[in-house]
Simulated assay, not measured.
Amino acid sequence: MSHTAHIRSHRKPRRSASRVAMRAGVAGGVLGTLAVAGTSASSANAAEPVTQTLELPTLTSDLAAQVAQSAEATEQAAANYRLGAERDAAAANAAKQAKADLADAQKKAEARKKAAEAARKKAAEAARKAAAERASRTAERPTLTASASAGSTSTSVSASTGSAAAVISFAKAQVGKAYVLGASGPSAYDCSGLTQAAFKQVGISLPRVSQNQSTAGTQVSLSNLQPGDILYWGGAGSAYHVGIYVGNGMFVGAQNPSTGVVERPLSYDPPSGAVRVL
């Protein structure tokens, strides 16, 4: 035996591996229990409602001014938008109305142009007819003058008998009476009203207007007139005046409102033609 065997060693005895393992297991179990307990506590705390108070920022005077300014800017923008929309609508309506007015003005201008053209043509036609009538009168004037100057017995009043004498007598009796357009006696006449009334005395019914009276009988030459022949001014069928040849180069007619019914020489207003109904 060693002489030191009975002396306890000053070194700590070594721990066996099994004891270390056992202690580690116990420690792990304790820590696991604590972890589970902590988790349970956390879950319990999480289940409970948490009340938290939020503090809103204080509305300072600067912030209030900014809010008011923003609201005012928004309102102004809306007003500007509405004003712009109204202006656009007004402009569209004005453009539409202007287009309609232009179309209407163009139609009226075209109508005026057509009316003016029609009036011009009518005036030109009237001038042409008047010129033709003047030319016809000028051409007939020498013949009429010669006939009036001759004063032959074949055209004298004394040579007229029967119906012609009655027509002439009635026509001369109306000299001095008034001219009234559309009148046919007994106190006033127009040109065709006088001739119609005169021939009615001998039972002859003449048309009422000059145009028709100028074609009522047989056309005769102005160089071969007889008392009682109807004289006309203008074209046959379009005459604008009539009278009655009474012989000796004279005629009786209701001329116009200024002169009334008069007896005049053929040279006073040479007729365009004549018809014979007796």
Results as ranks from 00 to 15, higher is better:
residue 228 G to S: 04
residue 150 A to K: 11
residue 28 G to M: 11
residue 214 S to G: 05
residue 96 K to P: 02
residue 203 G to P: 04
residue 4 T to I: 11
residue 56 L to K: 15
residue 11 R to W: 14
residue 43 S to C: 09
residue 152 S to M: 12
residue 85 A to S: 14
residue 130 A to W: 08
residue 264 R to M: 08
residue 6 H to K: 13
residue 120 R to W: 08
residue 265 P to Y: 01
residue 257 P to Q: 07
residue 108 K to Q: 12
residue 79 A to K: 12
residue 141 R to Q: 06
residue 244 I to N: 01
residue 236 A to G: 08
residue 221 S to T: 00
residue 186 P to K: 13
residue 256 N to E: 09
residue 137 R to D: 01
residue 257 P to F: 07
residue 207 P to M: 00
residue 25 G to F: 13
residue 261 V to F: 11
residue 9 S to N: 10
residue 268 Y to S: 09
residue 277 V to R: 01
residue 277 V to W: 02
residue 187 S to H: 15
residue 108 K to P: 04
residue 18 S to I: 12
residue 80 N to M: 08
residue 228 G to E: 01
residue 121 K to S: 07
residue 101 D to P: 09
residue 266 L to D: 02
residue 31 L to V: 13
residue 4 T to L: 13
residue 25 G to K: 14
residue 115 A to D: 05
residue 124 A to W: 06
residue 187 S to M: 14
residue 82 R to N: 09
residue 76 Q to P: 03
residue 242 V to A: 03
residue 77 A to R: 14
residue 24 A to F: 12
residue 170 F to T: 01
residue 160 S to G: 07
residue 60 T to K: 00
residue 267 S to E: 02
residue 18 S to Y: 09
residue 78 A to D: 06
residue 37 A to L: 13
residue 268 Y to W: 14
residue 4 T to N: 10
residue 41 A to G: 11
residue 114 K to W: 04
residue 194 L to M: 09
residue 69 Q to N: 11
residue 79 A to E: 09
residue 121 K to D: 00
residue 222 L to V: 00
residue 220 V to R: 00
residue 107 K to F: 05
residue 131 A to L: 08
residue 127 A to I: 05
residue 274 A to C: 03
residue 278 L to M: 04
residue 78 A to E: 03
residue 34 L to Q: 08
residue 176 G to K: 14
residue 205 S to P: 09
residue 136 S to P: 02
residue 219 Q to M: 10
residue 183 A to N: 10
residue 206 L to F: 04
residue 110 E to G: 08
residue 90 A to Q: 08
residue 66 Q to T: 10
residue 1 M to R: 10
residue 235 G to K: 12
residue 201 Q to A: 08
residue 32 G to R: 05
residue 3 H to V: 02
residue 258 S to V: 10
residue 242 V to F: 02
residue 221 S to P: 03
residue 85 A to K: 15
residue 111 A to K: 09
residue 250 M to H: 07
residue 169 S to D: 05
residue 97 Q to L: 15
residue 153 T to W: 12
residue 69 Q to P: 04
residue 66 Q to G: 12
residue 62 D to Q: 10
residue 225 L to Q: 03
residue 183 A to H: 11
residue 98 A to N: 09
residue 37 A to G: 13
residue 220 V to F: 03
